[in-house]
Design a protein around this nucleic acid. Structure first.
Lengths: 211, 211
DNA sequence: TAGATTGTTAATCGATTAACAATC
DNA sequence: TAGATTGTTAATCGATTAACAATC
């Protein structure tokens, strides 16, 4: 990964994948160069913001020309660490866990779900897409013998803290948390929360406000 | 809904459901009053921010006392519009669509998934939890005869724009978009994007940055 | 009453936008 | 070269934090 000049704000972190997505679309449509202005129109942001954001990581453009689409696409991919594979285990083989395990889009970005685990004996050995559901007590051994970077928690909040701790104790440092609770696992563990109910409440509230 | 004094920032909108969640936990644990300071410690934000946020909607506290937990919980519920039921239809009966249709937590907040639709004839009439999968051409009639507020798009991005337009044409004004594309449907339509792949990329990038 | 804690104004901080010299 | 557009500095805007008078 390219080393950023200074601290990257959360806002920039969230915009990088969007630049990547839009540039991918431009690559697909055969467009070879683009100015910050044209990209800004496409993405509905300001050109200034695009130039500021990119310059956290380096000068990828050329005065008078703009940006080479495919090379910028590749550079942002590198910044986001998409060059290497990222292995994921899913904890919880309910509907959401199974949906995650079978979601096709992750693989395109190098994220591979390589295991799905549950506590329910009933589910042991059942298929979840290409995977077989395993029992949680097999998890430590599985992590040890596979290069697991990310643990996804698709379990009730009552289980979340305990399961997260098992992941962390076995060396997983990235938690993708779908449980409705905040996890505090120490400075060296990164947690990304996805709270679908709160997302829905936000939608409904924004609509009521007319925003 | 209480009428806010001035424009509510996106940051505040996203924090309100978190206040609601934490206050709900306090209610459950039998705590009857709390100061902004104690709540700030619990939620890992500043007390100042809590007081500022709440005062967008009214003065819910009392000097020298703090906030009454259950009454603040109820007030925020009202602000978020949780008093009334919100009906949802899910478009797309793949793994994600089916997971959403069977997700238990929405109902607790008054969000009811009342229909799930797909284009695939193979799926017609199959069970998705308590619902039967219907065909998309039944959607306009379904919306007309039910009070549908929200449409959830759990479909590929190639279909998203067209399906969103069907929803909007039939009067749905809130789109919960899981497809990997931006939708621009006019000022009177509220769109909430949930891009799971981008969420994963964000997690991985933050971990690489050590944030 | 004295102590606690709010609601609100003022200060600070950080992110976004604007401007423009550098340069392809 | 002339025109276009970047990278970057400066200005603005908005959100967060601090401070404190009001008051329960």
């Amino acid at each position: 990964m390219l080393k950023p000049k200074k601290k990257i704000s959360s806002a920039v972190i969230h915009r990088l994948p969007k630049y990547y997505r839009h540039l991918g679309e431009l690559v697909d449509s055969g467009i070879q160069r683009i100015s910050s202005r044209d990209l800004s129109i496409r993405m509905r942001v300001t050109a200034s913001q695009i130039r500021q954001d990119l310059n956290h990581f380096g000068g990828f453009g050329q005065q008078g020309y703009g940006y080479n689409v495919s090379s910028l696409y590749n550079e942002i991919g590198k910044i986001l660490g998409l060059g290497n594979a990222h292995n994921i285990v899913v904890l919880g083989a309910g509907n959401l866990g199974q949906a995650l395990a079978q979601y096709k889009s992750f693989k395109k970005r190098g994220f591979h779900i390589i295991g799905i685990f549950d506590v329910d004996k009933e589910l042991e050995g059942r298929d979840a897409g290409p995977l077989k559901i395993q029992m949680i007590d097999e998890l430590p051994h599985f992590i040890e013998s596979n290069d697991v970077e990310i643990g996804a928690l698709a379990i009730p909040k009552s289980e979340a803290k305990k399961m997260a701790q098992i992941l962390v104790d076995n060396g997983v440092r990235q938690i993708w948390n779908f449980a409705h609770t905040d996890l505090h696992l120490g400075d060296d563990v990164t947690v990304e929360n996805v709270n679908l109910t709160e997302s829905l409440m936000t939608l409904s509230f924004r609509a009521a406000l007319g925003q």
